[in-house]
């Protein structure tokens, strides 16, 4: 069963009388354990594709299946639960909670919807921080971390709940090239090591080699042969 399947997805933004077709009849399958790189010009619909795939936005039409489950018609509450259980986001702007330590930022996802922060969760957070080379920084606040360290904490948070799909928006845009490569290395290792599927959006050509496959999007449509 594929990790993610988009069937003829359209997403139209309406602002006033204006309409923007951000995704135009997109069909896409991401296999289990596959790391897909998504590239395209600015405004081509990359972020929109991630938000639809990650159940943050409902498509205007078309179907979204994650791990075989159709999420197109779920209500807000179910979608929140679905995001918590199945999806890991790494946002472009990192978005750590500023008054929580690195470790607490990983544990945030365990505070919602009846899950608990137990010894097992703490162990997992410690282990992830270790793997991400942040073993000693668990009690640091985001303001005390470098840009690369923050990116790595965000990756840890995305992996914390053992998602089946990880969505990463421009992980290297704020980093210099050495740090960018290091973060991509880590990301690939973590994702491949866990058998998780991922879509990584990037502008950065040096990142292309890290993926199993590269897909181009232009004006909301995937280039032919992409699927």
């Amino acid at each position: 069963m594929p990790a993610l399947q988009l069937d003829n997805v359209r997403k139209v933004y309406r602002t006033g009388d204006q309409q923007v077709v951000a995704l135009n009849d997109v069909s896409l399958t991401v296999q289990n354990d596959e790391m897909m790189i998504l590239v395209g010009p600015s405004g081509s619909g990359k972020t929109t594709l991630l938000t639809v795939a990650g159940a943050l936005l409902r498509p205007t039409s078309g179907g979204v299946r994650v791990g075989g489950a159709d999420i197109t018609d779920l209500d807000d509450k179910r979608l929140a639960g679905f995001r918590r259980e199945e999806v890991g986001f790494v946002f472009q702007s990192v978005n750590l909670v500023p008054f929580l330590t690195a470790k607490e930022n990983l544990l945030v996802v365990r505070q919602f919807g009846g899950s608990r922060i137990d010894t097992q969760a703490r162990k997992r957070a410690d282990q992830l921080l270790d793997e991400l080379g942040l073993g000693g920084r668990g009690s640091s606040l985001p303001s005390q971390l470098s840009g690369g360290e923050k990116q790595r904490v965000a990756i840890g948070r995305a992996l914390m709940n053992d998602p089946s799909l990880v969505l990463v928006d421009e992980p290297t845009s704020a980093l210099d090239s050495a740090l960018g490569q290091q973060v991509m290395d880590l990301l690939r290792r973590e994702i491949k090591g866990r058998g998780v599927s991922a879509i990584v959006v990037t502008h950065d050509d040096r990142v292309l080699d890290y993926g199993d496959r590269t897909v181009r999007i232009v004006d909301g449509a995937l280039e032919t042969g992409a699927q």
């Binding site: 807000d76 639960g81 995001r83 259980e85 996802v109 505070q111 919602f112």
Partner: peptide, 12 residues
């Protein structure tokens, strides 16, 4: 918005 994206509900 971030917390909701991570799975928090309005109730949380």
């Amino acid at each position: 918005a971030v917390l909701k994206a991570l799975g928090a509900r309005t109730g949380n």
